[in-house]
Design a protein around this nucleic acid. Structure first.
Length: 302
DNA sequence: GGTAGACCTGGACGC
DNA sequence: GCGTCCAGGTCTACC
């Protein structure tokens, strides 16, 4: 027996634009099946039951197929998936501002703007820390180790596991975390975050609906060990605040090729390039059509 | 406020 | 197969 939930999205909505909004779909416990265009996620419900969600596009939003659920569980899953996909988000103001910018035409056409989230901010902060100072391959590996070693298994399918609850990491130690997951020096930051979250010293999840200004919210994120300017900006994007740009080495390269003929640029020059987009700065950067510039450069070189 | 160096993993490369 | 080098953000100490 299965349960199928039909969830409506604030239009316009494009399922694949959310799935491909960043690399989260490649990080456990997410998996994406190209053949069926299905995004799966192993979810640990509040009462501890572990289920697998299989999400697909539908005419009005998306459908979620999972094991047979009771009414409370159905409500929890609907709320969780709505948060993960930002189903209630409205990007009309961004699209209006972007209408005259050819480099954002694709963003409007494909209803880009939503950024795939994890069910909890704890998971998104941990994953963001795992993206810092390393390659994408190492990020995927460290995250997979974390899920394998500390996540609860899906009943009957032990190789599929949910993302670890903070308490699962908090009752361990940073040394064990480091040994088992190969997260290196990041172990202390992840362990501290798990302890603070598990024992109530840090109300991380409340930041999802915080009334703080973006500046103050950023300050709160920067207080987390392991979260610097790049990670904070990335997390703000996930939280639906777009006033900051996550400037990493890749961002410097993109801006360098877009406006500075490949010459080295600084973070300030990246900021300056998107200054006019104000509260949509992060969105304009994230969904800018960088590819067309790369193609133009290639054509010029030939 | 700006800069240098340490932190750790994994991929690329040379032998 | 092994060793070396390098890329990648954050933090801390120092100027």
């Amino acid at each position: 027996m299965t349960t199928i939930l039909h969830l409506r999205a604030h239009p316009p909505f494009n399922f694949m634009s959310v799935v491909n909004s960043h690399g989260w779909n490649q990080l456990a416990p997410f998996t994406f099946d190209e053949a069926t265009q299905t995004l799966s996620y192993v979810l640990s419900l509040k009462r501890g039951r572990v289920i697998e969600l299989r999400m697909k596009e539908s005419p009005e939003g998306l459908t979620v197929e999972t094991e047979k659920l009771n009414n409370n569980e159905q409500y929890e899953v609907a709320e969780t998936v709505s948060w993960m996909f930002g189903l209630e988000s409205d990007f009309s103001a961004f699209y209006a501002a972007a209408r005259k910018e050819p480099k954002l035409a694709q963003a409007i056409k494909l209803a880009r703007g939503r950024i795939l989230r994890s069910p909890t901010l704890f998971e998104d902060v941990v994953k963001t820390i795992l993206t810092t100072n390393t390659s994408w391959a190492a990020t995927k590996n460290m995250n997979l180790n974390l899920v394998r070693e500390f996540g609860l298994p899906l009943p009957g399918v032990s190789e599929k596991r949910a993302f670890p609850k903070p308490i699962a990491i908090a009752v361990s130690s940073s040394t064990i975390l480091k040994e088992k997951t190969h997260v290196g020096y990041r172990a202390q930051a992840i362990y501290d975050l798990a302890v603070q979250t598990a024992f109530g010293a840090l109300e991380l999840e409340s930041l999802k609906t915080s009334a703080l200004s973006t500046h103050d919210l950023r300050e709160e994120l920067l207080k987390i060990n392991g979260v610097g300017p790049y990670a904070a900006a990335n997390l703000l994007l996930i939280l639906g605040r777009f006033d900051y740009i996550p400037i990493d080495s890749w961002a410097l390269k993109l801006v360098s090729h877009e406006w500075h003929r490949g010459q080295p640029v600084t973070a300030k020059e990246v900021e300056a390039a998107f200054e006019k987009w104000n509260e949509f700065k992060g969105l304009a950067f994230w969904f800018w059509d960088w590819e067309s510039t790369e193609q133009e450069n290639k054509a010029d070189a030939e």
